[in-house]
């Protein structure tokens, strides 16, 4: 076998690394749905949904930070947050989400933490329910469902009564005290229609957050939902949420 000299070896190494980097960039690129919205009819082709793979989340909180920066969310409130579940061997459950996990997690002071049987992280955000309680109760019609099935708030119309905050069973809404109006996750509506993923999806290093068009049978999200077992939160309330959780544990509320 022909011996390669040092220079050739380094060259090969650089090419290989670059190849892997560029290749992985395409392989793991998150905006797999090509998007072009020019008219109202184009919007009808979309039904935005979200998948959360609880088995992948590592609780780094990058999504929470990305969301806060992208959407200018105040420090006290959260459009998205991550919960940590620690289930002890005797069945006791410890759940926490310090500062919504915006500073990730530190080891907690849970007594007998050595006795933890299993633990996992669960990202939460607005479920953009098909039958959303928040849009039902908004007295002025400021909370509404867009044509492409995203629950949004018209900030110029909202009176800040807080009825929607009460109605949301998931604690996803809050009154932005500075603006006096309700606020919540929009799936980064300003990004998704440019073909860009929501900030949280973009920031997730583990692809635990997946978004996409539920109406497109070829979309990544539709394929996942066709293959995996999943659940949604508080199904008994009939809100019909659109955030689908892979490996949803019964302790997750």
């Amino acid at each position: 076998m022909e011996k390669i000299d040092r220079r050739q070896f380094i060259k090969l190494g650089i090419y290989t690394t670059a190849g892997v980097l560029v290749g992985s960039f395409f392989a793991f690129a998150k905006n797999d749905d090509k998007i072009e919205v020019k008219s109202y009819d184009d919007l009808l082709k979309f039904d935005w949904g979200y998948v959360i793979d609880t088995s992948k989340c590592i609780g780094c909180g990058a999504c929470v930070r990305a969301c806060k920066i992208e959407n200018g969310v105040s420090e006290e409130y959260f459009r998205t947050w991550v919960e940590r579940y620690e289930i002890r061997k005797d069945g006791k459950v410890w759940v926490d989400s310090p500062k919504g996990a915006s500073e990730s997690f530190k080891q907690n002071d849970y007594p007998d933490s050595t006795e933890i049987g299993k633990a996992f992280f669960v990202p939460k955000l607005c479920n953009h329910c098909y039958n959303s309680a928040c849009t039902q109760v908004c007295p002025v019609g400021a909370s509404f469902e867009s044509t492409d099935k995203v629950v949004l708030i018209d900030k110029k119309r909202c009176v800040g009564c807080g009825y929607c905050v009460q109605a949301c069973p998931y604690g996803c809404r809050y009154i932005d005290e500075e603006k006096g109006t309700a606020d919540k996750c929009t799936f980064c509506y300003h990004r998704i229609h440019k073909g860009l993923p929501p900030a949280c999806v973009n920031a997730c290093p583990r692809n635990a957050r997946i978004y996409g068009n539920l109406k497109d049978p070829e979309s990544k999200i539709r394929k996942i939902l066709n293959q995996r077992r999943y659940g949604t939160l508080k199904t008994d309330l009939g809100t019909n949420p659109k955030c689908y959780y892979i490996e949803l544990d019964m302790e997750i509320k």
Binding site: Q136, P139, V140, A142, C158, V159, G160, C161, G162, G180
Partner: peptide, 24 residues
């Protein structure tokens, strides 16, 4: 209490009749 009291009349101007509060 309202976050935007100046918009209070929206409840009469643009009511969403699916909401119980809109009848207020």
């Amino acid at each position: 209490h309202l976050g935007k009291p100046d918009r209070a009349l929206n409840i009469i101007v643009t009511p969403n009749f699916n909401s119980a509060m809109s009848g207020f």
